[in-house]
Write a protein that binds this DNA or RNA. Structure first.
Lengths: 201, 201
DNA sequence: ATACAAGTGGAGCAACCCTCCACTTTGTGG
DNA sequence: CCACAAAGTGGAGGGTTGCTCCACTTGTAT
């Protein structure tokens, strides 16, 4: 009852000084990666609603382990897609020179929808996933914001349009494609309608 | 084995000659109404994802009965909202005289989003619900299509915009409001952005 | 070598969905 | 008025998933 409190060292949780991330034990780190790999496979194969128990199984890991590392489905989604979202952001930045501000936004939107559609089932929670604390999600969000700002500075996009509006639209379009298995052209059409909407008169 | 086929009367399933609906036995009809009432209450109170077993319980009906009458959740949703959707359509038609074609569409959209938000949880499936075979859903769909046509004839809306696009947008906006509990003004803003988009240059 | 923090797995409980079929009720034709 | 086929009922039951909890194992700092 006079518990160990007396000599307890106030050990701050170990962190990497560089990234600020909590350092995992070596075995835990390995498991984390196994889970991510399994999740990506399963999501691709069966959509974003696979049983998390199945993901754990494929990762050769107990379900408890999965939940401790990724407390919500969104957290797992965000982490599993991080790499892909990083690519998306990078590709967008790479296009920067060749495209007008408007066209950049169009390309970004189309790509975002495309990515979202690959992992069926996340359309509804795209917003939540993008807010996940993950390098990839940060990168795409930042890139999106940058494009909006750029287009606004160029005067080709309404001042009152926000990045959140973009996400909202991407969500809508993904959802529409998911439900009616609609074609690429429908995506383009919807993007087009929206872009017309945010263009300054 | 030489089954009753010989003398089987080819009795067409009884239908009301007026509506074309299948006639239910009196007790069944009563149960149907009980279910609908319970569903409306529960959906309002707990969102569109309540346990259907709970709905059945509140209706004092076995779960089997609920499922035979409404095979899918969407079917139940559609039926439960039918009355409200009827009102929506009627209100829209009533506004017809006082508003320009564009403003009519705006009002319709805002109302649709508002209705969708009241029943939390259906945003994602608004499209599916609206396709439900129900007087209310037919009415709102028809009214929406009418408004689009009217606005197009008046030349104030792009030719390539469809009613499905409207639904898609309503979905997006509802979803956005659902997630970030955003205000009425945000709804108006999003509707505004979209309307700008579909306006002819 | 030791000790303790960190990590693990999976049994277990709680929801929920939906089907199926032995039983009950209705209304109709004789 | 009755008998009986068709229509309707309810809820037990089997399947799936989500998430927690804790007795045990493992890594690592000393």
């Amino acid at each position: 009852m006079y518990s160990g409190g007396i000599l307890q060292l106030q050990v701050a949780k170990k962190k990497s000084s560089r990234t600020g991330e909590v350092l995992l034990r070596a075995d835990a780190q390995l498991n984390r990666e196994r889970i991510l790999a399994a999740a990506e496979e399963m999501f691709l194969e069966h959509g974003a609603n696979v049983s998390l128990e199945d993901v754990a199984k494929r990762a050769n890991v107990g379900i408890g382990t999965l939940y401790r590392r990724f407390p919500t489905r969104e957290a797992l989604l965000g982490a599993a897609y991080s790499a892909r979202f990083l690519e998306l952001a990078e590709a967008s930045r790479a296009r920067d020179g060749e495209l007008t501000p408007t066209e950049s936004v169009r390309a970004y939107l189309e790509q975002l929808v495309l990515h979202t559609n690959v992992y069926r089932g996340i359309a509804g929670s795209l917003g939540t996933v993008l807010q996940t604390d993950t390098p990839g999600c940060h990168a795409t969000s930042d890139e999106g914001r940058r494009l909006v700002r750029r287009a606004q500075k160029a005067g080709v996009i309404r001042r009152d349009v926000t990045f959140e509006d973009l996400v909202c639209v991407a969500t809508a379009i993904s959802l529409a494609s998911e439900q009616s298995a609609s074609s690429k052209s429908r995506v383009a059409h919807l993007v087009d309608v929206f872009l017309g909407g945010i263009a300054s008169r």
